[in-house]
């Protein structure tokens, strides 16, 4: 059975690209376009991994992680933060909140995202 990845991201082009890439790699992708939707989806589908953007409308990535910590079920799901900015403050905060890995969009490409995903949950 394919591993389930929840992609929480507001930028449609990024969603399309990642969905395409990760589907090609054999993962099952669900998408949420903001934090609130993201939390709902993860409770619902219980993904194996979450790819989480930080800056989003309604609810950002940090708040999502703060909420996740509170819920036993969600706490266990590994999170890879996809950030636009590489500011150390943000990266540190992400780590503090339990993110397994992080990547800066401009510094990485879809192939590297796949590598990080594989590293976390395998194929």
């Amino acid at each position: 059975m394919a591993k389930k990845i929840l992609l929480v991201e507001d930028e449609q082009l990024m969603i399309d690209l990642l969905k395409r890439k990760l589907t090609q790699e054999g993962y099952e992708i669900s998408v949420a376009k903001d934090g609130i939707e993201g939390l709902e989806k993860m409770r619902e589908i219980k993904p194996d991994l979450i790819l989480l953007d930080i800056v989003m409308p309604r609810m950002g990535g940090f708040e999502v992680m703060e909420e996740m910590i509170k819920e036993e079920e969600l706490k266990k799901i590994p999170v890879i933060v996809i950030s636009n900015s590489g500011q150390p403050v943000e990266l540190d905060r992400a780590k503090q909140l339990g993110a397994k890995d992080w990547l800066i969009k401009t510094d990485f490409d879809p192939q590297e995202v796949v590598e990080k995903v594989v590293k976390q949950i395998g194929r």
Partner: peptide, 26 residues
Amino acid sequence: VSLSAHQLRTPLSAIKWTLRMILDGD
């Protein structure tokens, strides 16, 4: 700064990733 970076880099990232995937034959 973070927001500006976000604003500026989001489209650049999207372009980068798109080009990369096209170039990689995806």
